[in-house]
């Protein structure tokens, strides 16, 4: 129950923060800040995949409805929710994950979070800009947007993790 409330509050905060703050920060060269993938990343890693797909879909649509993108965010959120378990499996540490612990910076090594979350973000950004532009003769522009936005998103997400998240107690 506490888990549910915690993630529900995060849902609201991340959606509002993305739509009202980070989507308003528009720098030229196509740089965009994306913090909402962090919410999907921080969902319990053993959560049922059906549930996490549906949560990601509704979460994406919420952001879409505020920022007039009509399904773009939902599409990329569903994609990373689908890929997430596969990547977790790929990067599984030797002694597996602690059940009930959060896969955030506080419980995992910096290198693990950086590479796993970075890979998820890369996929997310690439899909998002590819679908937004949807022209193969402008693929270079898609790459430019992805490569330029990625560092900004990663730095902000890691800052959020270090500032706002606390170590979850393991029994």
């Amino acid at each position: 129950m506490i888990q549910f409330i915690k993630h529900f509050v995060r849902f609201v905060i991340f959606a509002l923060a993305q739509a009202l703050i980070f989507n308003q920060l528009e720098i030229d060269y196509g740089i965009q800040f994306m913090v909402y993938p962090l919410f999907i990343f921080l969902l319990p890693f053993d959560l049922n995949i059906f549930l996490s797909l549906l949560i990601a879909f509704i979460f994406g649509l919420t952001i879409d409805s505020i920022s007039n993108t009509f399904g773009l965010h939902a599409s990329s959120a569903v994609l990373i929710a689908y890929i997430r378990p596969h990547i977790f499996k790929l990067f599984e540490p030797r002694d597996s994950y602690d059940p009930g612990s959060e896969l955030s910076l506080q419980n995992m090594e910096f290198r693990w979070v950086f590479s796993v979350f970075g890979l998820l973000l890369l996929i997310h950004h690439f899909w998002f800009f590819l679908m937004e532009i949807f022209k193969f003769n402008e693929l270079l522009f898609v790459f430019q947007k992805t490569i330029l936005s990625l560092p900004f998103s990663i730095v902000i997400c890691i800052l959020i993790q270090t500032i706002f998240l606390r170590k979850t107690k393991t029994k």
Binding site: F57, F70, A74, S75
Partner: peptide
């Protein structure tokens, strides 16, 4: 299903 629904809307 979800993917095509959201892209369809977009």
């Amino acid at each position: 299903g979800l993917q095509s629904l959201s892209l369809y809307i977009y």
